[in-house]
């Protein structure tokens, strides 16, 4: 009885292991799938509206220069999505130093981004590709 099961598992493991490579057909960039510059700007604006609406995080941005933040977030999303931009802001560690950003706050920002993309009808796999690009920044942002 054990054998077929074991082979199914191995198959699944291999499938998961290959997933990282298989996910990029690479012809269209994530930037394009997000709708190019217009799309990225819409996502960032929508996300900042949701951030402002979320009591868990809105206060943190109360004193922020939102025009600058909007521009830098759009640059950053564009750059990590293989778009034609260069991020010109501070590093993630520098810009969040001293804020002691909690996991709750980090997840709240991620949720604001997810809901913004949902509202803009971005396909879930495309959303997840962007989230995957931002995920490694978590350790640079929280508890700094």
């Amino acid at each position: 009885m054990g054998r077929p099961i074991v082979s199914v598992f191995c198959g699944a493991l291999v499938a998961l292991a290959l997933a990282g490579c298989a996910a990029q057909p690479a012809h269209r960039t994530l930037y394009e799938d997000l709708g190019g510059q217009k799309g990225v700007e819409a996502i960032v604006s929508e996300m900042l509206l949701k951030v402002a609406d979320d009591r868990r995080i809105s206060a943190a941005f109360a004193a922020s220069n939102l025009t600058r933040l909007r521009r830098l977030l759009a640059e950053q999303v564009c750059a990590v999505a293989d778009g034609p931009c260069k991020y010109t802001g501070y590093s993630m560690v520098e810009s969040h130093r001293g804020m002691e950003v909690t996991e709750i706050e980090f997840n709240a920002v991620v949720e604001a981004l997810i809901y913004a993309m949902e509202d803009l009808k971005i396909a879930t796999p495309t959303q997840n590709r962007l989230l995957a690009k931002l995920a490694p920044m978590r350790d640079e942002i929280i508890y700094r």
Binding site: A19, N128, R129, A132
Partner: peptide, 13 residues
């Protein structure tokens, strides 16, 4: 969890 798992779907092992 892989956000971009097999067939572009999120996957968990």
């Amino acid at each position: 969890v892989w956000l971009t798992g097999p067939l572009k779907h999120m996957a968990l092992l």
